[in-house]
Computed example of a mutant assay.
Amino acid sequence: MEKIKLALVDDDYLIVTLLKSFFNQDQSTQVVYDTTDGYQLFNYLEEKNNERIDILLLDLKMKTIDGLEVLKHVKTNHPELKVVVVSSHYQDNSIGFMTKEGVAGFLPKGMSPFELLDIVKQVHKNGFYLNKDQMEILREQISSKVSKPMLDEDELLTDREKEIIKLLCQQKTAKEIGEHLFITQRTVEGHKNNLFTKIGVRNVAGLIVYALQKHIVTLEELSLN
């Protein structure tokens, strides 16, 4: 089984050291890069021979460069990299903003390493993490701010796209969706990217919020832990 490759960026050296030790002891994860300076991460990502990163665990408030700047740089230059922000400055009223910025998860510091490990696995499998409380908050925050589509609602999405959204809301992977719909994984990824563009979101979490707003799915139908 291939391990989930992690990067840790936090200006608290003790936190970085402890998390690195914890993740490297687990059979499913490996920390391939860690730093207390966000600028050093940029250098690592630009080196083509460096080991790939699946998930970046990122602090918000750091001395040399703040986490939001790091997030913006990563999502602009390495959009495939999933970013989970873990911060002592976590606030419920920031969930909508962080989701729009493209994070795969927004978490408070202080949770147990085992809980964080479980969330890392969910992000790696599903592309995002939102618990039910966060989903409720997110729906309220974004509902009044989502821009209206230029087309009529019935014309905006095809039946196939709605079907794919429903399966994504059930946390199905592209491979699982392809098998269910008898299409290739690459075709599923193409549909997903088209949906991001059509709806104006950056990740699956944004698709889920849209699906809730447009009654494509209900909160009870979501497969959230």
Rank of each mutant, 00 (worst) to 15 (best):
L181Q: 07
R202Y: 01
E153F: 14
N126H: 15
Y90H: 14
V74N: 01
N203D: 13
L156I: 13
N43W: 00
I119L: 10
L138R: 11
Q141P: 04
V123S: 09
K125I: 03
H89S: 12
T173Y: 10
S94V: 00
S28T: 13
S143C: 01
Y44F: 05
D26G: 03
L56K: 05
K148F: 11
G110N: 12
K48C: 00
K214I: 11
R202Q: 07
D154V: 03
E140V: 15
V32P: 04
L116D: 14
K100L: 09
E136L: 13
L156W: 07
K145A: 12
I199K: 03
G102F: 03
Q40N: 06
L212R: 00
E47H: 05
L60S: 02
K5Y: 12
A211P: 01
T76E: 15
G105W: 06
L117S: 06
M135S: 06
Y44M: 00
R139A: 09
V209A: 15
T36G: 02
V70L: 08
K214D: 07
I208S: 08
Q122T: 14
M1H: 09
L207W: 00
P113F: 13
L6F: 10
S21Q: 15
V146K: 14
L57M: 10
Q170K: 14
K5C: 11
I65R: 02
I53L: 07
N194E: 12
V83D: 10
I119G: 11
